[in-house]
Design a protein around this nucleic acid. Structure first.
Lengths: 257, 257
DNA sequence: CGGAAGATTGAGAGTTCTCAATGCCTGTGG
DNA sequence: CCACAGGCATTGAGAACTCTCAATCTTCCG
């Protein structure tokens, strides 16, 4: 069975048979984490690379006074910590938001993956997109009020999930409490609640029982001022975006954060 | 003459003679930009990779109502847009903050650089650190008030500049107006001004004439709650931090900052 | 059915923003 | 060398947005 990483890489580049063979190795060591459990802690020096196979997780950092800031959401196909291939230790933690399955890849396997040009290239693409997502997150926190902020995050998740086929007619699962949403957006849970109410009243979106309903995505996008270009998703018409010059076959899809 | 990229890479890894020879090529096509000029615009599809050689620049994004959010400061040795090696177009702009010299590297040269294992590895390290800086930026915007926010940014710049020898006894050049500082921190220039005044009154730091004075960096750090671990700087004793296990040649690299 | 976590709602306090006026500095032209 | 213009820095006052503290209601589960 094709795991999420395979789908993700395939949506970016053309994988060869040997690539696929190697990628099969990835599913060999799988571990499960319960919801709200840490997958990796700040300061850890993991000796495996972790890959999300199922469930949601988030990157987060805890400050002095115990406040938490979430810096990214991880969904199946996202790596938790490519960092540790190069950096000495984790500078943030990763926690499971739902029950989750995580593949543990040995350093050796990771190296083999990276030695495959097509895979390496796809991973690089994904990492650049992730960086764009981080920048968008900064813009969201720095320049938008709570209303636009929430709407924008939902638009982003909508776009990303839609892109990997996890969307059903204007609705999707969002396994987050209002508090977690606040930790991601730099808001208190109380304020998240009030703004959510306002979004609901204006019929822009509804969050109920870990589920998001969006009656009219275009209207939500325009009132949120959402511009998906940073996700570099393949446009409907555009067969696929293409790097300006070089002749690399590399399209879109996002990931992480 | 050794340009900033060489110093930067050398501080990360041991460069061979052929590496150095290749890096000499980097200085062949240099262009200058006046202060406040765009180096690259949002949406551009540059066919060269740009490298900062001298001066400061910033990544930024302009929103609907014209508000600007700065997402990174670029100093000599930082790449402006490794992205375009893979992604189709810029999803943000880059502007010179001071007069700046920028090296233009052809795609071909860029490819040759990436083919060098040591250089690729160093670039990848830098890119991972940059990602950590982006996450720290998010934490700063999401969970700190204006006072800690400004103090933290200054602490970070202090640490980074100190690390590359651009610091002189508790003081350094910061070629930013209060408005630009606000654009980086998600604050209005008026509020930046008031908080700067408070920081000055408490003798934590002074910003005057594009220059930062820090009487006691440890005090500033502790009141700011600054934790430099995300910069992964070489500790004084520790020759260099080192990845837990292996050392492999790797591909990618990413951007700047 | 009882508990506990999460969602709601109200009231009051703080932080940050907006609008505006004024002061300071630097570079230019006379 | 001095006057003036324009950009930036300061300061004041009031408005807006978010937060804190608390109480109450719902929903989920054992």
């Amino acid at each position: 069975m094709a795991h999420p990483l395979i789908s993700k890489l395939q949506s970016i580049g053309e994988l060869g048979d040997d690539d696929l063979l190697l990628l099969e190795e990835v599913g060999k060591d799988i571990r499960r984490f319960a919801a709200r459990r840490d997958i990796i802690r700040d300061g850890d020096k993991p000796d495996h690379v972790h890959l999300m196979l199922d469930g949601w997780a988030c990157r987060y950092k805890i400050l002095r006074e115990g406040q938490r800031q979430i810096t990214a959401f991880l969904v199946p196909g996202d790596f938790c910590d490519v960092h540790i291939t190069m950096l000495p230790r984790m500078d943030h933690g990763i926690g499971a938001l739902t029950a989750a399955s995580v593949a543990f890849l040995s350093r050796d396997l990771m190296r083999q993956l990276i030695d495959r040009p097509v895979i390496a290239r796809a991973l690089w693409w994904a990492s650049l997109v992730d960086e764009g997502v981080l920048r968008a997150w900064i813009v969201n926190l720095g320049r938008r009020d709570a209303f636009e902020r929430i709407a924008n995050l939902i638009c982003e998740l909508h776009a990303r999930l839609n892109n990997v086929g996890l969307m059903a007619a204007g609705a999707f699962e969002l396994p987050l409490t209002q508090e977690e949403l606040g930790d991601a957006l730099g808001l208190t849970p109380v304020h998240v609640n009030r703004v959510l109410k306002r979004l609901h009243e204006q019929e822009l979106m509804t969050m109920r029982r870990q589920r998001i309903l969006i009656p009219d995505i275009d209207r939500l996008r325009s009132t949120a001022g959402f511009d998906p270009s940073y996700l570099h998703l393949a446009g409907p018409g555009s067969s696929r975006e293409r790097a300006a010059g070089a002749g690399a076959p590399l399209p879109a899809m996002s990931a992480t954060r």
